[in-house]
Amino acid sequence: MIAEETLVQELKQEESRAKAFEVLVNTYKERLYWHIRRIVLNHDDTDDVLQNTFIKIYKNIDNFKGESKLYSWMYRIATNESLTFLKQKSKKMGISDQELKDRLVENLEADVYFEGDEIQLKLQKALASLPDKQKLVFTMKYFQEMKYEDISEALGTSVGGLKASYHLAVKKIETYLKEN
């Protein structure tokens, strides 16, 4: 795998940009896809947001200062794009953010790209009831197995705060699964 610094340098130079960008897309598409999918839930919406995320990365690569890892910076863009997408969707439909989240989970039952059973559907319901930050930390740690340090860079929150959010999320999900 190509070193991150080299890739960033190549992305910033016009003559090597196209090739380097292809490498970047191939390297990160799956990880970013799953990150976005766990926020917006539906495959088609995820596809839209993923493509917009990469276009934003392409257009803003000159603004990447290298203060964080490229990987964390891209996660941050993907997170913002996903949350903005949900906000715009709820506004367009004239419903609250929470109503939209509940509807998205309800739609999973008829989604051909969701093969979850009853317990996995319940898990999604539990996740939909969590505040955004807790849900993000939980999915990034539990399903994407990211390190707290990387999540901290991506979400701009301290490691201590993230650990607290994660444990709180686990407790709430467990309680939800027990009671429902």
Binding site: R38, Y113, G116, I119, Q120, Q124, Y142, I173, E174
Partner: peptide, 11 residues
């Protein structure tokens, strides 16, 4: 209690 897989698939 929490499942290890969340059931999402891709085309």
């Amino acid at each position: 209690l929490i499942p290890k897989n969340d059931g999402f698939t891709v085309p």
